[in-house]
Design a protein around this nucleic acid. Sequence first.
DNA 1: GTCTATACAAAGATAGAC
DNA 2: GTCTATCTTTGTATAGAC
Lengths: 207, 207
Amino acid sequence: MNDKDNIAKSESTEQKIKEAARRVFTSKGYAGTRTRDIAEESGYNLALINYYFRSKEKLFEIIMMENLQLFIGSIIGMLNNEATSLDEKIDQLVTYYVDMLMVNPGIPVFILNLVNNNPSALFEGVLGGNTVSDTVFATQFKEQMKKKKLTIHPLHLFMNIVSLTVFPFASAPMIKAKNGISDEEYNQLMLERKILIPKWIKVMMDM
Amino acid sequence: MNDKDNIAKSESTEQKIKEAARRVFTSKGYAGTRTRDIAEESGYNLALINYYFRSKEKLFEIIMMENLQLFIGSIIGMLNNEATSLDEKIDQLVTYYVDMLMVNPGIPVFILNLVNNNPSALFEGVLGGNTVSDTVFATQFKEQMKKKKLTIHPLHLFMNIVSLTVFPFASAPMIKAKNGISDEEYNQLMLERKILIPKWIKVMMDM
DNA sequence: GTCTATACAAAGATAGAC
DNA sequence: GTCTATCTTTGTATAGAC
C-alpha cells in the first residue's frame, strides 16, 4: 500500500463519516443526534468521529455551514444579479429551491430548528450583511410597484416566493400522512408547483 | 388550610409546571429539553415533574396533543362547514392562523419537528380520517375550478394558504436577523399579511 | 405537596492496544 | 487508522425526610 492509497483511504473514511453525519444531523437535529448514531450510520466506530472531527459540536458546525450555504448562501447571487429581470429571478428562485429540496428534503426543518434555537449572531457570518431590501431584486420590485402605484414591502414578495416553495417540503410528511398520498404523487405535485408558483406570484403582485 | 385551598394550590402547581413545559418543549423540542430546564422554568423542583406527570415522555405527550389540536384540530371544523363560502373559509383560515401564531410563534417549528421525527401513525389519532380532499372546502374549490375550466388539485390551494400564512412565522427569527427588523415591525408585516393573503389567494386561483 | 439526596441509564470523550 | 474498553458528564427517575 503506497502513499496515494493511504490518502485516498483516509479521505474516504473522513468523507463517509461526514456524509453519515449530514444525514443524521439533518433529519434529527443536534440534540436528537447521538454520536453513536453517526458511527453506526457511517459503518465506522465511535472513536473515529473524535479522531477526525474532535467533537460532536465541531462536526455539527461543518454540516450546519454546508446546509446554510445550500439554503441561503446560494440565492444571494441570484437576488443581486443585474443581468436578470425580476420575472427571471422569480423563476430561478423557485426552480433552485424545488430542485434542491427534492434531493435534500430535510434541509428546511433543519434550518428552522437552527434559527429557533440559536442566537441571531450566527447568521451574520454566513450571509454577509446583505439584507433583502438592499438587493437588485428589491429595487426591481419597487420600480414595478411604482409603475402600478402600489406600495408593498419587498419582503412580502420574498416571503411569498420562499413560503410557497419551501413550506410544502417542510410539511411533506404531514401532508402525505394526512391525505394518503404516496411519495411519487407528492413529487408530482411539487413538479407542478415548480411551474405554477411563478405564475401565481406574478398575478399576485399585479393586483 | 381547608380542602378547597389544597386543591387550588395543587392545581396551580401542576398547571405551572405544565405551562413551563409547554414553553420549553415548544421552543427546544423533545430531545433538546432537559427536565431540569422545565423545573427551573417552572420555579419548582425536579422531583415535582415526576410526581405530577410520571415522566418526561408523558408530559411531552400532553403538550404535543395540545399543540397539534391548536395547529390542525381547530381547522377541521372550518374546512367542513357547509354554511360558509369558499372565500369565507379562506378568510377564516388566514385569520385563525395569524392570530394564533402571534400568540404562539413556536408552534410551527414544533409541529414540523414532530412530523419529521415520528411515524405517521401519530396523526391518525389526532385528526380522525379526514383528508383535505374529502372536505366541503375541497368540493367548493372543485366546483369553482369547473366553472373556470381549470384543473388544479385542491391540495395546492390548501398548501398555498397554509404556506403563505404559517411559513413567515416559522422563519421569523431568520428574517428578522437577516434584515434588521424589530419585533414590532415584524408583527406589523404579519398584520398586513392577514389582509393581503386572502386577496392574493383569490387572484392566484382565478388565473 | 414539596424538597434533598441519590440511584441508574445514556451519551460524549479519550486512552491505549493493534 | 481503527478498534475495544473505560472514564466522565449529563439527564431521568425515585426514595425518603419534612
